[in-house]
Simulated assay, not measured.
Amino acid sequence: MRADARKNHDHLLEVAGAAITEQGIDVSLRDIARRAGVGLATLLRHFPTREALLDALLRTNFDELTAKAAALETSSSPDEALASWLRDCVAWTTEYRGVVVLMAAAIDDPESALHASCSTLRAAGARLLTRAQAADKARTDIDGVDLFALVSALAWLGDQRSLASRADHLFDVVASAILTSAPSSDAGAERDPVARN
Rank of each mutant, 00 (worst) to 15 (best):
E64Q: 14
V100S: 03
V90Y: 01
A69M: 10
L54Y: 06
D63M: 03
T60G: 12
T74V: 14
T66M: 04
L58T: 05
C89L: 15
S77I: 09
A69R: 04
K68E: 15
T60M: 02
V99R: 01
L53N: 01
L72F: 12
G98Y: 05
S77C: 10
W85E: 02
L44T: 07
V100E: 09
V90H: 01
A70F: 08
V90D: 02
L57E: 00
D88K: 04
T66P: 04
D88Q: 10
T74N: 13
T49N: 07
D88G: 13
L102G: 04
P78K: 04
T60S: 14
S76K: 14
V90E: 02
R59G: 11
R97E: 14
R50P: 03
A67S: 12
P48L: 09
L43A: 07
V100R: 02
R50H: 09
A71N: 14
A69F: 07
E51F: 12
R50G: 04
S77P: 05
E51I: 08
R59P: 05
E64M: 13
N61C: 08
A83D: 05
E95Q: 11
F62W: 03
V99S: 04
L72Y: 08
E64T: 14
E95G: 08
L43P: 02
G98H: 02
A70S: 15
D63K: 07
N61I: 10
R45N: 15
C89G: 15
D88V: 06
T49Y: 03
V99P: 00
A71L: 12
W92V: 09
L86Q: 03
N61F: 12
L86Y: 04
L44F: 10
A81E: 01
E51W: 09
A56P: 02
A83V: 08
L44H: 07
T49L: 09
A67W: 05
T60P: 08
S84D: 11
V101I: 13
R87L: 11
G98D: 05
K68A: 15
V90I: 07
V101D: 15
T49Q: 05
T94K: 02
R87M: 09
L53D: 01
S75R: 04
T49W: 05
L54I: 07
S77L: 14
L58Y: 07
L102M: 12
E51C: 12
L54G: 02
L102P: 00
L57V: 01
S77V: 09
E80N: 06
L53E: 01
L53R: 00
D55S: 10
H46L: 09
R50F: 08
A91L: 06
D55P: 00
V101R: 12
E73L: 13
L54F: 11
A83G: 07
P48Y: 11
L102R: 06
T74H: 13
A70T: 15
T74Q: 14
V90R: 00
V90W: 01
W85K: 01
E51G: 10
R45M: 15
S75P: 00
P48R: 03
V101Y: 13
W92M: 14
A91Q: 04
H46D: 10
R59N: 11
T93Y: 05
D63R: 04
A67T: 11
L54A: 06
E95T: 14
E64G: 12
L86K: 00
V100M: 08
L65D: 13
V101N: 11
L86D: 00
A83Y: 06
